[in-house]
Write a protein that binds this DNA or RNA. Structure first.
Lengths: 304, 304
DNA sequence: CTGCAATACTTGATTTTGTCAAGTATTGCA
DNA sequence: TGCAATACTTGACAAAATCAAGTATTGCAG
């Protein structure tokens, strides 16, 4: 079962269990197309009929008839455009908004009934998962950089372990190492000298992580960039650059004079990124780590 | 935005971006209902028309007409039931299966086109997320207990941290502690004396965890049950009992004579579970931990 | 400034699909 | 034996979608 079959499979399960996709609106006397149209009318400014039709993939003729019905029922006002009187910019009236609320309640009831067997916790889990799907389906928005919340460290560990196991064949000792690094970071809790960032999509999916950590009490002027990871689907979007800038900026402000980082030769895209940001390769040595032969690299740059 | 609004929101986004729910089948000349019906006909044994109609929420009359069309095109055979000649048990023919494959390819192409803007990694992420949703929507299947895979330890940490922060207000020192415990467990990698189990749904969602760990070299006969957590939506299903049995069974087989565990007074359901499984409360003391006042409990039982 | 293509929407004709109610044949059972 | 229930079909109709042609208006090339 590949990715596309999984999606097909979901579509079937979903329409089966939540048949409301096509019917729930009958309770309020509106057809699905009418409901979708009414929903799309709910904007700040005026809308053009053609835009609506194209946005929903509806026939223009059908759209025209449905809109006529809305106007008859007083749900929309059709103005006349001063500059171009072919257009009839549409506005939802108060009555239209009220109808939209009726619709919303009907659809909520239908969903609540259809998901009743899941229980409250199951519903919450479903909502969380579907919200992530919505987030993926939306046109990509610039990610947010934020500090760590409960559970983030665990997720950073999980994603490091899963991706490095898949792409590099690392064994579980790598997951142990990452867990140790993060456990120590959280325990020190030195918020003035150390910081972690999570990149997240507007919908809350974790897209990556980066950490600035102190090298240690014996080298107070040296910071280390660690646990820099970006999810595959967020690579090549300029996010990496933003994250590294946040990290360098913090390290500089915190008074460090130098930053180190450790990576592997095989991460070539990462290497180019470090080079572009003023890092230089200062050491390189073959090593056996996490069940694999790798070539360790140490990069370094001075901070302003 | 509550759970139900998130689901509503997903429905809209999904139908908008993957409008194929209603149309893609036109490429193959079949209406949505026809496609769904054909799909549901694909079973080992014979099917009754009424079952199909009810399963899909279709009108029986409509179903009858569509099935007549299928028979005309040679996609199904309508037998006559020996015992009850009112029924006409349905079988998909080879031609019917071929048509189903045509449909499958058309729908795959449509999904591939609609998801093209996501890229391969985005598609994989979407498929992973929607597969979890399918899993939640399916009637619950008995969970699986399995060993740890890469990323599991991280997820165990994340879920402990997130749930205890939400329900008990624990701060990040708790996440650090869990990460430390797991890092040490993975590093020891003592597979004969220690083991962790992940409970997962058939679709792969993590539903819980439990670990049997050695108390330490100074007490070789004592095992400790740790990191026992069950996701809210999987509570009250008997899963906890299965997990504790797996853990006790392993500890006994590994030669331990006694098992300890540590919990808090506020976890009353857990306390009852431990009592039912032969544990006795041996110590109880107020403590300040993870930013909260709690009452620590130690439970203990002998192993056979 | 004229005429023709393009735009924004409407209307009509037709097909497709869904719905409701009545119809046939058969079974089970009091 | 007869009557309700079951399994499916058919007819009549309504709703929705589709295709094509229609009106009014605008923009712009010549």
């Amino acid at each position: 079962m590949d990715d596309i079959d999984l999606i097909r499979n979901f579509s079937r399960t979903y329409t089966h269990r939540l048949g409301l996709l096509s019917k729930s609106y009958l309770g309020s006397g509106l057809a699905l197309s009418e409901a979708r149209l009414l929903h799309d009318l709910d904007r700040a400014g005026p809308v053009k009929a053609r835009e609506l039709a194209q946005g929903l993939g509806l026939d223009e003729g059908q759209t025209s008839r449905i809109l006529a019905g809305f106007a008859r029922r007083g749900w929309i006002r059709r103005a006349r455009d001063e500059a171009d009187s072919r257009q009839r910019p549409l506005h939802l009236t108060e009555a239209g908004r009220a109808q939209l609320e009726v619709l919303r309640l009907a659809s909520r009831t239908a969903i609540a009934e259809a998901t009743a067997p899941l229980g409250a916790a199951g519903l919450a889990a479903l909502a969380r998962v579907l919200d992530q799907a919505s987030d993926l389906l939306r046109p990509p928005q610039p990610p947010l950089l934020r500090g760590l919340l409960p559970g983030d460290a665990g997720q950073v560990i999980a994603r490091h372990a899963a991706l490095y196991a898949r792409d590099e064949g690392y064994d579980q000792s790598f997951e142990a190492l990452v867990a140790e690094i993060l456990a120590a970071f959280l325990t020190r809790n030195d918020t003035t000298r150390e910081r972690g960032w999570i990149a997240q999509s507007p919908g809350g999916r974790m897209l990556g992580s980066i950490f600035c950590m102190a090298e240690g009490p014996e080298a107070p002027q040296i910071a280390r960039l660690r646990l820099f990871l970006i999810e595959p689907e967020a690579r090549g979007t300029g996010l990496a650059q933003r994250m590294i800038e946040a990290c360098l900026g913090f390290a500089t402000a915190a008074g460090y004079r130098q930053m180190l980082l450790w990576t592997h030769e095989s991460h070539q895209a990462a290497g180019r990124l470090y080079a572009r940001n003023g890092f230089a390769l200062v050491a390189s040595s073959p090593a056996r780590a996490f069940g694999r032969e790798v070539i360790d690299q140490t990069w370094q740059r001075d901070l302003p």
